[in-house]
């Protein structure tokens, strides 16, 4: 079975460490916040200028001056800090964020990522995604392995305009966890019940498959 959105978030949450500052992109990455292990302290960075993002407010707590990068009303946790956009991107571009999790349309064997633009379709902009992929060292890309039509999103070369060049090393799809090294995808783990053959079939870029590919457990 392919991983559910929640299982993908749970798998990424295993990468968290106590004391980590983490930036979560919009969509499935946001769900990672629901699976921070008990007893572990993690601070979420929201690139509009908030370190220590909390949960959504109650109706009584809503404050128009308190939003996240998705423009949703939020709260701040105890010990949070709030700052300007320049300060926020100094943290991001200066490599101070420990883990960045974001979605993508395509990745390729060179670590290129395309995530913000489909030519001919609605172009809304890259927001902070180009800064995040250029600035972070530890980036987790979350995406489905193939399109609805079965076309692989793990390619030899991205076909869509890039968000960043040569910056991705870790990819979690609904079928597998892979790492990118030496111009190849390396299969590290597979989703429960998903065969290595299926992953091979749905990976267009060169894939290195070890003799044993452990199954994820949840």
């Amino acid at each position: 079975m392919a991983l559910s959105r929640e299982q993908m978030a749970m798998r990424v949450a295993r990468e968290l460490q106590d004391g980590y500052y983490v930036n979560l992109g919009i969509g499935i990455p946001t769900l990672v916040a629901n699976y921070i292990p008990d007893g572990m302290e993690v601070m979420l960075q929201s690139e509009n200028g908030l370190l220590g993002m909390g949960q959504f407010p109650t109706e009584d707590e809503i404050d128009a001056d308190m939003i996240n990068a998705g423009k949703q009303t939020v709260t701040a946790i105890t010990g949070a800090s709030i700052f300007s956009s320049a300060e926020s991107f100094a943290m991001i571009r200066g490599g101070h964020v420990d883990l960045t999790v974001l979605g993508a349309f395509e990745v390729d064997v060179e670590g290129n990522i395309a995530s913000y633009m489909i030519p001919g379709k609605l172009v809304k902009g890259m927001g902070g995604a180009m800064d995040l992929v250029a600035g972070a060292d530890n980036i987790f890309v979350l995406m489905t392995h193939a399109s609805k039509h079965g076309e692989s999103k793990l390619l030899t070369k991205c076909t869509l305009p890039l968000t960043g060049a040569g910056c991705i090393k870790k990819v979690l799809t609904d079928l597998a966890y892979l790492e990118i090294e030496d111009g190849k995808f390396h299969l590290k783990e597979r989703a429960p019940g998903v065969s290595v053959e299926e992953i091979i079939e749905k990976t267009a870029g060169e894939l290195v498959v070890p003799a044993e590919v452990p199954e994820m457990t949840f």
Partner: peptide, 24 residues
Amino acid sequence: PQGTLAEKMRAAGAGIPAFYTATG
């Protein structure tokens, strides 16, 4: 890019005509 945009404003205000960034 959002960080570049912030930095373009910051740099202008600080008398810096241009800067190098990995972003983009």
